[in-house]
Structures are given as structure tokens and as C-alpha cells.
Amino acid sequence: MLEIKGLTVDFRVEGRMVRAVDGVSLSIAKGQVMGLVGESGSGKSQVLYALMGLLAENGRAGGQALFQGQDLLTMAPRALDLLRGKRIAMIFQDPMTALNPYQRVGDQLAEVLFHLPKAQAWERAVAMLERVKIPDAAARARRYPHEFSGGMRQRVMIAMALLAEPDLLLADEPTTALDVTIQAQILDLLGELAAETQTAILIVTHDLGVVARLCDRVTVLYGGRVMEEAGAEALFEAPRHPYSQGLLAATPRMEAPLAPRMTTIPGTPRAGAASLPGCPFAPRCALVTDRCRKETPQLIEGIACREVTR
């Protein structure tokens, strides 16, 4: 369904080009759910924006992103417009900036179904709001985004994406504003979508519990590069890359005894790591060698680290 090969994203910042995404490759089959995890600023959202043709003005994408065989990156803008919102839908990280503040929520949803008569589109929109557990959906549809709570806006975005019945769903942190009981319902809804309509899903999340519940496979990003790609079970059972290991070790567990401070990964990420040679994780890695600092490790059989494959 989706095959990304060597995707790069560069931004012009103060006259220089800064690389945010550096050669990301991944593929997702029909009905499959791929999780995209990684440190804040590692390029997760930019991967999704590049696929949607929605990079900021100072951004450029390179590489290939084949959707049902067509390259999204070189496609004519009009052709991409046709795909977007219908075959490919996206749930944005920041719902307030993605919703139109001056339009009633129901109208924004009904617009997705522009091919239907207005009344019918409205009815479908309300039904979808009910499926994402918005209470009193019929009345709520007549309200504006600022009258919704953070989590309700997030569910409006989810409803909008689901109404399109897309072949590919890109979801950027879709459940961060939901309490865990509603989050579980929404994740199950996404899971059903993948199973029943064979939608392929690429979901960005920081919550490894979300990955565990929903994802078949996981791609781990750090500093704009793929560190590891694995089946969900394999990754949780035996993470191979030192960064993946750090992520799992830093994941809080409710059953564990309470320590005075939370576990972090020592060190801080380098700004602009993707523009520099060497492994982006090298400065924080316990296994680091001289070679790691000079030569960028390639992703081979799901892992970009020579030290653990030796």
C-alpha cells in the first residue's frame, strides 16, 4: 500500500539547509498498522507531512514515497489533492490549528462527504461523532471548535479522517488528549478499521502502550534516521538498538515501585543531528566506538547499528 524509500526532508533555516529527515524507508501493507516512535523532534511529523505534500514553505522532500505504485513526492499537485482527504487521510498532532475556527464542526465533517446530498452528509457526520464517543453528537455538531475540549477536538479530527474511509490513514499522536478509557475505545475503533476495510495505518505515538495495543510493526526514529524496524512483539521482547532499549527502559510501568525520580536516557539529543555524519545516537550511546561517530550506520535487516549485529 505504502512504500517509502530514502525519504529526506530539508529545511532552509537562516540561509542554510538543515536536514530533519534523513533517508527514512518503511513499507506498510493493506490492513497493517505501523507505529512510528522516537524522540521529540526526530522527524516523525515531517515524514507524514511530506507524504501529504504539506511541508512548510521552507521545506523540501526527497526520495520516494510510493502509494499504490504512484510516487506521492513527484505527483502533480492536482492529482495529490484528489488523493488527499479521500484515499489518504491524516489526523494532525495539533487539532486546534487543523480545524477551521469559524465553521461549525458538523459542516467541516460533512464537507468530507461533498459527493453526498447535504442532509445525508450531515447525518453521516453526526453518526461518526457518536462512534468517536462525542456525547450529545447531534447538538454538538452545531457548535464551533473553541467550544470543544482538547480531547473532543481530537476526536473530531479522528471522525473527519474516518468519514473519508481512506486506504491509508496517517495519524499523528491521535489520542494524547483522551483519558485512557476513551483512548482504548478509539484504538479499538482504529484496529477495526484496519481489519475490516483493510486500511493501512501509520500512527505516530510516544506511548509504547498504544503501540502495544494497536500496532503490528514499529519503526523507531532518532535524529531523522530509522534506528530499528521490527514486529511489535519482537521489539518489546528484545529491542536490539541501544536507543530502542533506552526507550523501553524509560517507559514508566504502573506496577513498578515508585522511585524518587523518573528514568531518562542519559545525555541530550544533538540539534540538527541529521545534518552531521555518524550515528545520531552516538553521543548518548553506551556502545559507542570511533567508527560510530564518523560513519553513518545503514539500516540492514531492520537495524542500523553495527555494534549489536557484530
Binding site: 478509557t181 483512548q183 482504548a184 479499538d188 502502550g209 502495544a212 495495543r213 512483539e233 518489546f236
Partner: peptide, 26 residues
């Protein structure tokens, strides 16, 4: 409902989320 980083445990909980209608402030 707190999701744990454990795919096997989580998978067995799929479809068992809390059910019922949410009440409305209105």
C-alpha cells in the same frame, strides 16, 4: 485501562474497552 508496553497483554484486551454512553453537559 492504562495501556501497558506489552503487546500480548494488550492484544487480549482489544475489544474489551469500557462501554456505555457518555453523558452530556447540556
Amino acid at each position: 485501562a492504562v495501556p501497558e508496553p506489552d503487546p500480548l497483554a494488550e492484544r487480549s484486551r482489544r475489544g474489551k474497552a469500557l462501554q456505555g454512553e457518555l453523558p452530556s453537559v447540556h
